[in-house]
Design a protein around this nucleic acid. Structure first.
Length: 212
DNA sequence: AAGCGGATCTACT
DNA sequence: GTAGATCCGCTTC
């Protein structure tokens, strides 16, 4: 499969984002088909945690590709996959998924929620799959890892600037990232068009007014 | 030591 | 659509 120290992910987070859409993320007792992601372009991206340089919190993002970068905010855990070579810090945030295995566990992990809400939003996705901060730095392309990724190669790269059609007939939509106050208009969020598990868009109140 | 902002979520109108 | 809960870090005093 994959050579040690390398991953099947493209180092460009926008390309990696397309590779990850439709892939299966296996967690603790449950699995999700990834339906929504966001690309973060590392030290040159004002919205990235890496923008201010290496620190304790973001160190995993500067490490080797294929590892899980987790962070906490508002009491929730969010999960990214690092896609760039060691020393760089580009990554893809996993924002939502459709639970395709372990549905019976959702009664305790997501009580009172409808199935489309089980993994809707980055904090809900990690809760549904049993991912916590203790999973930081997990190599997700090793099937022996407790959290691991099964890439689905549904996503040809755009050619000649044309939006690709996935072989299954699904489309990918793009738009601005949710909740970021800087680079708030960059179309770095990608999702499976029309999928009910995709989270709602909300612009950061701190972002400058949309131009155009 | 205090304040505030954030890659959020939920409940409510 | 709006507000409040919530909590960790970073900034500032």
């Amino acid at each position: 499969m994959t050579e040690p120290g390398s991953t099947p992910l493209d180092p460009d987070p926008l390309v990696a984002a397309r590779q990850l859409l439709g892939s299966i993320l296996h967690g603790r007792g449950a699995s999700a088909l990834i339906t929504e992601v966001e690309a973060y372009a590392g030290t040159t991206d004002p919205a990235s945690h890496a923008f201010r340089g290496l620190d304790r919190r973001n160190a995993v993002m500067f490490g080797p590709p294929g590892h899980l970068y987790t962070y906490q905010m508002h009491g929730h855990t969010c999960a990214n996959i690092v896609c760039s070579p060691e020393g760089d810090a580009r990554a893809v945030l996993l924002r939502a998924g459709r639970i395709v295995a372990g549905q019976e566990l959702m009664a305790e992990r997501r009580p009172g929620r409808r199935d489309r809400e089980w993994a809707r939003g980055p904090g809900n996705l990690t809760r549904a799959l049993g991912i916590t901060m203790a999973d930081a730095d997990t190599p997700v392309f090793e099937p022996s890892s407790p959290i691991w990724l099964e890439l689905r190669d549904l996503t040809p790269e755009p050619r000649n600037g044309v939006e690709p059609l996935i072989s299954t007939g699904l489309h990918i939509s793009t738009g601005p990232r949710v909740g970021v106050s800087r680079a708030a208009d960059e179309p770095y969020r990608l999702w499976l068009t029309g999928d009910p598990t995709v989270s709602a868009y909300r612009r950061s109140p701190a972002a400058p007014p949309r131009i155009g």
